[in-house]
Design a protein around this nucleic acid. Structure first.
Length: 434
RNA sequence: GGAGAGGUGGCCGAGUGGUUGAAGGCGCUAGUCUCGAAAACUAGUAUGCCCGCAAGGGUAUCGAGGGUUCGAAUCCCUCCCUCUCCGCCA
């Protein structure tokens, strides 16, 4: 959510920023609602002040009565005042109602306005304007006919899509044996790395969240269609970003506590109605997948430096897993609704001869903090300020499995295990179907 | 799911219709004192909105929302959350 004051005082640049994000909204309505809200508040405050004042007079008059016996004059005055105040009281009710209507309308409008991109973000309509920042590793070379990860998984007997479909339907996968263990090992490996080497606190949050939490991170009200919702009104989390960001909802933190770095391994649930037809094969696009998430709360002054570190933390996972990747800076048209700056990590998929997203690291600045009302008290005193929130995948585990299968396949159908992961798999160096 | 108890400022805790944004205590900050510290004493110590260049002023907030009333932390209703006991359950 953006600050309405900021929007109205920087109309032109906000309009351009919203356009760059390929979105739109009604600026005129915003102005009207804000004016309405302000006017109601003005009249309300003045009337309230009068009411409070007269209230005291009534008390004084009544005291006078009880002290001197019933004075006819005071009694009459009191009656007159009470009559007047009755009118004031009902007018106040009208004002309060119209003010809260204006405020509600204003807020729901504000909630649909996207975050503005940071000045360092390339402006462009779509992914073709994304900028490659750096590459790591060399795309794997194979001198035999390679298989995609779905076929490898079936051949090794570790992934079973057909049976998953019997349980749930399309876009689910059943992991078996080594497959299940590999997924578990990766989660452990990533969590250990981030908690022991990168300074994150491990969190195990609820996997269901309420509506307010989803509004706080920006998934609601605009993207309800991407979410699974339970009969009881809970949402299945589409990412651990939701619980991790809402942990400190409605709180004022101390500057001394910042930055706060947390990580969580959770399943993620995505309805993604609009994605039908893309990536239908394999682990790339699923209704349920596991992810280790990284999340930070920082001061505004440090958030961009922390974003670079966050990206580096996620990259470290790929490096240790010996997976070739590149870092992309997303253009305005390809970024998400809530983000001010996003780097994607893309891992090499040899069968597709291309890099595919495996992590998305974003600085949301105060966009989420404003929605979820997360602030901090500055060290040197002064008003509370909104924190900046950042998050990134470190990494999406399903896609990591896919990348390991494709990049680690060997002519005899066996699978090479990267050294860093071997301790988590009982020292196994190569997996061969038994 | 059933029965009961409760939700007040950073924390503890008083407060059942009229200067109560809220006693008291703790904590924290500053000052006095001290060689320094502790103790003691003094002062300060929430957040939103509106008006204002500012100083400052107004207004709201005692889990949330509604109602009664000239006036609500206090009375009524609905909802949420926490705790205890029972039931169910991994």
């Amino acid at each position: 959510m953006l600050d309405p004051k900021f929007i109205l005082s920087h109309l032109d640049s906000v309009k351009k920023g919203v356009q760059d994000k390929r979105q739109s909204f009604d600026f005129v309505l915003l102005d009207q609602l804000d004016a309405q809200r302000r006017q109601c508040q003005h009249e309300y405050d003045a009337l309230r002040a009068q009411q409070n004042q007269v209230s005291l007079e009534i008390v004084a008059l009544q005291k006078g009565e009880s002290h001197n016996g019933v004075s006819p004059k005071a009694n009459k005055e009191t009656t007159t005042l009470l009559g007047e105040m009755k009118g004031v009281s009902s007018r106040l009710k009208e004002l309060a109602l119209s003010q809260s209507e204006a405020e509600a309308a204003l807020r729901s409008l504000l909630l649909t306005i996207p975050n503005l991109a940071h000045e360092s973000v390339p402006v462009g309509a779509d992914a073709s304007f994304n900028k490659e920042i750096r590459k790591w590793g060399k795309p794997s070379q194979f001198d035999f006919k390679i298989k995609d990860h779905a076929d490898i998984g079936e051949a090794l007997g570790i992934l079973d899509v057909a049976r998953a479909a019997k349980i749930a339907g399309a876009r689910f996968t059943l992991y078996k044996g080594f497959g299940a263990r590999l997924e578990r090992a990766l989660a452990q490996f990533m969590l250990d790395l981030h908690t022991e080497k990168h300074g994150y606190l491990e969190i195990l949050p609820p996997y269901l969240a309420n509506e307010k939490a989803l509004v706080g991170t920006g998934m609601l009200p605009k993207f309800e269609g991407d979410l699974f919702k339970t009969r009881e009104g809970y949402y299945l989390i589409p990412t651990a970003e939701v619980p991790l960001t809402n942990m400190y909802q409605e709180e004022i933190l101390s500057e001394e506590d910042l930055p706060i770095r947390v990580t969580a391994h959770t399943p993620c649930f995505r309805a993604e109605a609009g994605a039908a037809g893309k990536d239908t094969k394999g682990l790339i696009r699923q209704h349920q997948f596991n992810k280790v998430e990284l999340m930070k709360y920082t001061t505004p002054e440090t958030s961009y430096a922390e974003l670079e570190k966050l990206v580096a933390d996620a990259e470290k996972v790929l490096q240790l897993l010996e997976l070739p990747y590149r870092v992309m800076l997303l253009s305005t048209g390809d970024m998400s609704f809530a983000s001010a700056k996003t780097y994607d990590l893309e891992v090499w998929f040899p069968t597709q001869k291309t890099y595919r997203e495996i992590s998305s690291c974003s600085n949301f600045e105060d966009f989420q903090a404003r929605r979820a009302n997360i602030r901090f008290k500055p060290k040197d005193g002064g008003k509370p300020r909104y924190v900046h929130t950042l998050n990134g995948s470190g990494l999406a585990i399903g896609r990591t499995v896919a990348a390991l299968l494709e990049n680690g396949q060997q002519p005899d159908g066996s699978l090479r295990i990267p050294k860093a992961l071997q301790p988590y798999l009982g020292g196994l160096q190569v997996f061969i179907k038994s």
